[in-house]
């Protein structure tokens, strides 16, 4: 089930059975459980002789609907650039629900640039017959290619059982900026079992590999070593071949967020926050710290008055490099 914006979730309560209207339109596409949905989508881009990026394959299926799009928000790297390919992922059905199996393959061909956005947040719910849902995303970014991936948050609803697995393979000389945001349950609700893994390799060398496990089956994640009492956790990974010869400095720019170099030509913004809006602000603030062309040129949202005191002052973190 998709929501129109992450903010709407904090004021809207769903019942666990609200997915029922979806049943009649679903078709069983080879999945094991009755009513479960299997969707496989493919997206490729290539550069033409004039170095403009074009979408090659745009294959949607079931719940995963891909369509050419206009810019959705101010974009790092590609802001106001017209020669790049822009595609939006939209929901063809609610979900994933328990038992569903989604997969998305993205191939950004050498020298091309793809901006992939998402129409709405993805709400992961339990299925009508139980079972685990899966979403596998495989991304390949070719030599000299750029992938700007700005999905909306994933919301792990109460009772869900979901495995989210994202693999990103970058060739040497590829550029990347990708965001991932996880909301731990809807408003005042504990999350179900949710495991999300992100692995990024650059030139066949591992750059980032992290899994986050939350929910009743995982232990200790509410402790202060993992996410504490926060309702939202997320990161931005940025990769630039220019950082092969030295990455920007570390910055502990907020009490709950950092910007730090990865072991390779990449930077990480990592943040936790009470809700999705503050998480987005912290992640964006981290990217802003990198300056142009990573900082979107439209003015960032100001932190509300009550949170300003948490921001670490400039003098405190300049020595952190």
């Amino acid at each position: 089930m998709y929501a129109s914006s992450p903010r709407e979730h904090s004021s809207h309560k769903y019942s666990p059975h609200e997915h029922s209207p979806r049943e009649p339109v679903r078709r069983d596409q080879g999945a094991r459980r009755p009513g479960a949905m299997s969707s496989r989508a493919v997206l490729t881009t290539e550069a033409d002789v004039l170095a403009r990026s074009r979408v090659g394959v745009l294959r949607s299926q079931g719940a995963l609907v891909l369509r050419p799009a206009h810019p959705k928000e101010s974009e790092p790297l590609t802001h106001r650039r017209r020669e790049v390919a822009r595609v939006m992922l939209a929901a063809g059905a609610a979900g994933p629900l328990g038992g569903d199996d989604y997969s998305l393959d993205v191939h950004v061909g050498a020298g091309s640039t793809l901006v992939l956005t998402e129409a709405s947040a993805m709400l992961v719910l339990p299925g009508p017959c139980g079972g685990r849902s899966h979403m596998r995303i495989n991304v390949y970014v070719g030599e000299g290619a750029t992938f700007v991936w700005l999905p909306e948050p994933i919301i792990a609803a109460r009772g869900c059982d979901h495995e989210h697995d994202v693999r990103v393979r970058l060739e040497r000389g590829a550029r990347l900026v990708m965001r991932e945001e996880t909301l731990l349950g809807r408003h005042r609700e504990p999350p179900g079992d949710f495991r999300t893994t992100l692995r990024v390799t650059h030139d066949d060398t591992p750059l980032y590999h992290q899994q986050l496990c939350v929910g009743p089956q995982a232990d200790g994640w509410r402790g202060a070593a993992v996410v504490g009492e926060n309702g939202a956790v997320g990161s931005i990974i940025a990769v630039d071949p220019a950082w092969e010869s030295g990455a920007p400095a570390t910055s502990a720019f907020h009490s709950s967020a950092i910007l730090a170099p990865l072991p390779g030509p990449g930077m990480l913004v990592s943040a936790v926050a009470p809700d999705s809006l503050q998480l987005r602000r912290r992640l964006s603030a981290g990217l802003d710290t990198l300056g142009a062309p990573w900082a979107p040129r439209d003015a960032p949202l100001p932190e509300p008055e009550g949170h300003r005191d948490e921001v670490v002052s400039e003098t405190e973190h300049t020595g952190a490099g």
């Binding site: 730090a260 670490v312 952190a320």
Partner: peptide
């Protein structure tokens, strides 16, 4: 396997 602990990373950098 890799199990992340975001608050540990944040705390260490501070």
């Amino acid at each position: 396997p890799s199990r992340g602990a975001p608050l540990s990373d944040i705390a260490a950098e501070h």
